[in-house]
Each structure stands twice: as C-alpha cells, then as structure tokens.
Amino acid sequence: MNIFRLTGDLSHLAAIIILLLKIWKSRSCAGISGKSQILFAIVFTARYLDLLTSFISVYNTSMKVIYIGCAYATVYLIYAKFRATYDGNHDSFRVEFLVVPVGGLAVLINHTFSPLEILWTFSIYLESVAILPQLFMISKTGEAETITTHYLFCLGMYRTLYLFNWVWRFYFEGFFDMIAIVAGLVQTVLYCDFFYLYVTKVLKGKKLSLPA
C-alpha cells in the first residue's frame, strides 16, 4: 500500500458516497445516468468474485464489500425507489456498444484464459469506459448539478491516483500490470475534458454548463 493507492481508494469511496447522498438527500436522481451506474455494478461484481476464492486483507475485503453494496444501492435508488425522477430520455447511450466490444477484448487479451481471469479483465476494460453514458448525458442536457460534478471529479481522481500508484509500484516493486495500466490511462483520458471544466468553472463557483 502506498499513499497514491490509499488516496485513490478513498477518492473512489468518496465519489460513491457523494452520489448516494446526493440521491438520498434530494430524493431525486435527476441528471444521473442509471446506465453508468448499472455498468459500475457489473464492474464490481465481475472483479470482486475473488472475494469467494481468496482472502487478501481485511481492508481489501471490506472495501470490496462496501463498493459492491453501494453500487447496488445506487442502482436500486435510481431504478426503484426514485424511479419517477430518473431522466431516462436523456440517458440514451447505447451500452451494448461498450459491453460487447469490451467483452470480446477481454476474451482476446487477458493474462490467463480462465473464467475468473476473463471476468477480471472484462471488469477492468469495462470500468475504463463505464462513465461514458454519464458524460454523454451531460453533453446532451448541456449541464450538471454541482454535486454531480464533485462526484465525477472524485471518480476521475481515483484512477488518476492509481496511475501514480502504478508508477510507484513499478519503480519500487518492479511490478506492473499492462492491462490495468492501459485501461487506466484510457479511463483517465476520458475525464480530461471534464477536469478542465471542473477547474475552470466549478471551482470558481460557477455551475457546469456547456455552450449550446
């Protein structure tokens, strides 16, 4: 464990909790892409199946359980409890265009051709693009609530911090995982445009709205 990984994990946790609280407190999931949240629930489920096969640490197990639990809770709030506030018309990204190619890629490029490994790889690839429905929704409506932008910032920072973690691990442990690194780079690049808007607008007290 190094500082980048710990802050990355905490940033990820903060993102998940910010989103849950936003929906819970406002009793509304307006502006939130249910499709992205379903993809994240799939990502956690596919990746953390090793909870059943191997124990790594109390930290590792508890974080995995919290991530999975929160992911399903979020999906439940969007599609069941506060379904009436879900903006399905604007959440029109075609997720099959992500899931199918990503599934194919996971079968083709993985560390070991075994079900658990392919699912792990699938989750890494899928996570890197799972935010696209959310970003697509924002580009479609042209705006996002400030609390939603804080969520996106924490979520983007998490993988960015992991990139530093991987540099650290390569340097000090001689360890690197090409699949995670390439996918993590893709994931971080997808947030660059948003990071720019967050720093130039939201941090200066303005609402995030895109030019028409």
Partner: peptide, 10 residues
C-alpha cells in the same frame, strides 16, 4: 505471485 499483487488492488 504476480496475480496476488494484482488482486490486492481495488
């Protein structure tokens, strides 16, 4: 082993 190192990340 390498797989273990990889799997301790979240």
């Amino acid at each position: 082993k390498e797989q273990k190192k990889r799997k301790d990340e979240l």
